[in-house]
Simulated assay, not measured.
Amino acid sequence: MTGQARIHLLSLDEWWALGEDNGVRVELQEGVRIVSPRPTPSHARVALSIARQLMDQIPAGLEVLPEVDVVIDPRMPPTVRIPDLIVRPTASDDAQIGADQVILAVEVVSPGSRRTDRVTKSSEYAEAGIPHYWIVDEDHTVTALRLTDAGYEATRYDGTIVTSSPWPLRITLD
């Protein structure tokens, strides 16, 4: 007979103490380490293209950051996600990026992340109050989610995003 394994849920302090692992992407979901492969070159190209276009069009006082830890929920057990891109105010705290600093989070869907990006992260980001969340698919479509009192409201774009929210933008996905 085997004993039941006990899972230790990490605190934020324990999470930060782990340091960085460049071999894999590691996020923290309710105190549990979630490991996934690093992005593929095509995934990185899409994220970089969107980042460049965002940087050319964001208002003064905002910045685009790739692949940074964002504390979605600091309460025990905490959740820390690594969006492909975020937009936040430049005057924000660098020590620990909280969801309250994120204006836009962008996730480029990978073959193993569809459900996580569409369901789990969508729910987490909405609950954390991130006002804009874009889910970019391999077929060059984007589901742009805008937070309302009733939750995220979705707009789907094919090939080009033309929007006035969160600011006037034109992003080409080809």
Rank of each mutant, 00 (worst) to 15 (best):
K121L: 15
S113I: 04
R114S: 09
P131I: 05
D84E: 08
V64C: 05
I50V: 15
I50Q: 08
R38C: 08
T143W: 06
T120V: 15
T141W: 07
I86H: 07
D73E: 09
V68M: 11
W15Y: 15
Y125I: 11
D93P: 00
T79A: 08
R88E: 00
T172R: 14
L9S: 11
Q4D: 07
T116H: 11
M76H: 13
T141S: 15
T172N: 13
H8P: 00
P166R: 14
R81Q: 12
E153T: 06
Q4R: 12
I7D: 06
I34M: 13
P59D: 10
I171Y: 04
E138S: 11
A99S: 14
G98C: 02
W16Y: 13
D94I: 00
N22S: 09
L173P: 11
D158G: 03
T160H: 01
G129T: 06
N22C: 00
D73G: 01
S113Y: 10
L173I: 07
P39S: 03
S122C: 14
E63N: 06
A95H: 09
P66K: 06
W134Y: 08
D137I: 02
E14V: 11
E124V: 03
Q101R: 13
E107K: 08
I97T: 11
G61C: 12
V119H: 03
A91F: 02
T148R: 10
P77W: 04
V162E: 15
V87Y: 01
L54H: 10
R33D: 02
T40Y: 05
I130V: 15
A126E: 12
E138Q: 15
S164K: 07
H43I: 13
S92F: 00
W134S: 07
I58N: 04
G159S: 05
Q53I: 02
I58Y: 04
R52I: 08
R75N: 06
I72K: 01
P41N: 07
V46C: 12
L173V: 09
L9V: 03
T40L: 12
T79Y: 02
R118L: 15
P168I: 02
P41T: 13
V35E: 12
Q96A: 14
G19W: 05
D69G: 14
Y125D: 03
T40G: 06
I171L: 15
P66E: 14
A60H: 06
S110Y: 08
I86P: 04
D139G: 08
R52T: 09
M1S: 15
D93E: 02
R156Q: 13
L28E: 08
I50T: 10
V35G: 01
P74T: 04
T143P: 00
P166A: 11
I161G: 00
L12K: 01
H43D: 12
Y152S: 10
I97M: 01
V142G: 02
V119D: 11
T2P: 12
T79R: 07
T148M: 03
H43R: 10
A47Q: 07
V35C: 02
P168Q: 06
